[in-house]
Write a protein that binds this DNA or RNA. Structure first.
Lengths: 217, 217
DNA sequence: ATTAAATTTTAGACTAATCTAAATTTATTA
DNA sequence: TAATAAATTTAGATTAGTCTAAAATTTAAT
């Protein structure tokens, strides 16, 4: 088995490599993980030795099949536990991330599969992120950032690309929860902020918010 | 917070100090934890520095109030998770120990309390062990080892002092599950084995088994 | 195409937890 | 009660993960 630390690196590399296509940089990892570049380099060497990543000095890293498999298993566990926490234990969607961050390292395939069944084989977690299947396949939804939409277009809020409690709480307060349909009214030239209609009411959101709110059209 | 390792030491010290009254020895801990006496000494010094145990060189260790509080919190989590695994995920009672051993280190009081509520505030785990309350109070049941009983006496099987899968599977196969009532028929002089009646049938158990099976009379 | 800036790696040190082997203390017993 | 055995602790080494500071490499810019 892999250590918690190794697992966290693999998860981060996975996430960064889907955002910025494929090759991941040392500094990129260091920033996300709140650590130093030197530490990242050490770990990249170790993961390369274990054949979990492809790594070329000064060039960056990408996951091998084995590495990707491990990464998606961790993400699967993270998201299933989040569903459990929200659906069964009545946590709010902004409270579950840190706890799931710990639970994702519990080691038992049997446990994961039984949890999956217990939850009724959910397809997405409480933030709209898709839950990988046992083999690591992820059903990617056709998410569109609100910031990319044009006036007149409408979409159903289906995901977020920021998972911090403050952001989620802001959405909650503004009624921008998963499943609600929004229509773009107007985009302000001055600062790119967007006025949209949400459940009969108009409201303005900043460009920053629009970038992190995902809809399905 | 305390490291996993510290938590495991505290749990072990707690368990040993209830078995053999109070003061716990270095070798005793080393044996239970599958480690070396030298490692135990190091950790005892560290735990003493943190005021979690009272420790006198060459004399042994005992928990402080703070140490006991931490230990019982871990045991509370362990046993609640075991209930979850058996009641909600349909694991057998002999399959849950190792998984709970990992889950017991997840750090969130909120999680524990919500889990407790979700499970309907259970009083005992699947092996009959009492679940400590939030404050660390344990409702000790009046357990009696079958090996201490006399012919003619009867009792309800209510706990075990061995938690290994092989032992639990043996009990399962023999029909010696929690809740069934057994009556002592005869104690063999030769090897101390015991013949008892269990659900209309007589069966013989070894002294070793009798020492680890607990009943309430 | 050099130079400067940014990124990345190496070297060397630190901490937590562990180990072996040797030294010390306590317990046993002759 | 002195000698031996058992238990415990210390000394010194090892591993995983981290860090700072310095060196190497790549990228950007003049």
């Amino acid at each position: 088995m892999h250590s918690f630390t190794e697992e966290n690196y693999l998860k981060t590399i996975y996430q960064l490599s889907t955002e910025d296509n494929n090759v991941v940089t040392t500094n990129g990892i260091a920033e996300v993980m709140n650590t130093k570049a030197a530490s990242v380099t050490d770990m990249l060497k170790k993961l390369a030795d274990k054949k979990l990543i492809n790594y070329i000095r000064y060039q960056g890293a990408s996951l091998t099949d084995a590495g990707r498999q491990t990464a998606t298993e961790i993400i699967r566990k993270h998201r299933l536990w989040e569903v459990f926490l929200v659906e069964k234990l009545d946590f709010k969607w902004d409270e579950v991330h840190d706890i799931a961050e710990e639970l994702e390292h519990i080691n038992s395939k049997e446990l994961v599969d039984r949890l999956d069944k217990f939850l009724g084989f959910p397809k997405t977690d409480p933030h709209g992120d898709p839950i990988p299947d046992r083999k690591g396949n992820i059903q990617q939804k056709p998410f569109v950032k609100i910031s990319k939409m044009k006036p007149g277009e409408a979409g159903k809020i289906s995901g977020v690309s920021e998972h911090t409690p403050v952001f989620l709480q802001y959405l909650e307060k503004s009624g921008l929860t998963l499943g609600t349909t929004v229509t773009i009214i107007e985009i302000m030239e001055f600062d790119g902020s967007i006025i949209l209609n949400n459940q009969e009411k108009d409201l303005s959101i900043s460009r920053e918010v629009a970038k992190n709110l995902l809809v399905v059209i």
